[in-house]
Simulated scan of single mutants.
Amino acid sequence: MHGPASPGWLLVALCAATGAYCLLRMRSTVEEQRRTAGGEALMGFGMAAMAVPAAVAAPPHWAWLGYAAVFGAAALRALWAARGGGHHLHHVVGACAMAYMAVVMAASPGGHHAHGGSGVPLVTGALLLYFTAYVLVSGVRLLPVAAMTGSTGATVPGSARTPGWGDRPELSRACRLSMGIAMLAMLVTL
């Protein structure tokens, strides 16, 4: 991607940290959690690789085609997994967005995309709208239930099994939120 180097490196760090956390979540005892975490780890590390500032390391043309192939395959896998419902439809959209960005970068001369006078392309605009809505909804889901309902009910320590830090739903939601924000940042620079 192109743009200033400092925000680019922050985006790389955010995506790599998210990918690393998702790798740790793959140690969960819940099979569906492991599968979802694996797809999210791929997205996190792929986003980190694609966000490296072009001024530092401009990837060769074939690398963009490789990204497109990897994320195209990830989109097909997520589409297959979406037959059972759940969060997989978002993974389909995310993987398709990554493949789209890779194709745009491969098609542009020197790996830089220029819109010219035509404004934002339709696909980019639709993806921006989707990820903006996703980030807003994900942010609301992170609000504690007690804060949303106004209740102050406390749980008795030891009354329920506390999930491991890799199985905590709020951490996986925060992970998805950070990747949604990163996706927005990458789409804006496209």
Rank of each mutant, 00 (worst) to 15 (best):
P4W: 14
A5P: 06
A5F: 06
W9K: 03
V12E: 01
V12N: 04
L14P: 03
L14Y: 07
C15H: 15
A16N: 14
T18G: 04
G19R: 14
G19V: 11
Y21E: 13
C22G: 06
L23M: 04
L23T: 00
L24Q: 13
R25F: 00
M26L: 08
M26E: 04
S28W: 01
T29C: 11
Q33N: 15
Q33I: 14
R35P: 14
T36F: 06
G38H: 07
G38Y: 02
E40S: 06
E40H: 15
L42T: 01
F45C: 01
A49N: 10
A51D: 13
V52D: 08
V52K: 12
P53G: 06
P53W: 10
P59C: 00
P60S: 02
H61E: 13
H61N: 07
H61K: 05
W62Y: 09
A63H: 08
A63Y: 12
W64N: 04
L65V: 04
A68V: 09
A69K: 10
A69P: 08
V70Q: 07
F71V: 03
G72E: 01
A74D: 11
A74R: 01
A75K: 04
A75P: 06
A82H: 04
G84V: 12
G84F: 04
G86Y: 06
H87D: 14
V92T: 07
V92A: 08
A99L: 00
A99Y: 01
V104P: 04
M105D: 11
M105E: 11
A107I: 03
P109T: 04
G111I: 01
G111Y: 07
H113M: 08
A114R: 15
A114T: 15
H115S: 12
G117L: 10
G117D: 13
G117V: 06
S118I: 07
S118G: 13
S118D: 08
G119C: 03
L122A: 11
V123T: 09
T124K: 06
L127S: 06
L129T: 05
L129D: 12
Y130W: 14
Y130P: 07
Y130T: 11
T132D: 13
A133P: 14
A133V: 13
A133Q: 12
A133M: 11
V135L: 05
S138Q: 07
L142R: 03
L142S: 01
L143P: 00
M148G: 14
T149Y: 12
G150M: 14
S151D: 13
G153R: 11
A154L: 09
V156E: 08
V156K: 10
V156W: 02
G158Q: 12
A160G: 15
R161K: 10
P163K: 04
P163L: 03
G164C: 03
G166P: 00
R168T: 02
L171W: 13
L171D: 00
S172Q: 09
R173D: 02
R173S: 05
A174Y: 01
A174F: 03
C175K: 09
R176A: 13
L177H: 00
G180H: 01
G180R: 03
G180F: 08
M183G: 10
L184T: 07
L187T: 00
L187D: 02
L190V: 14
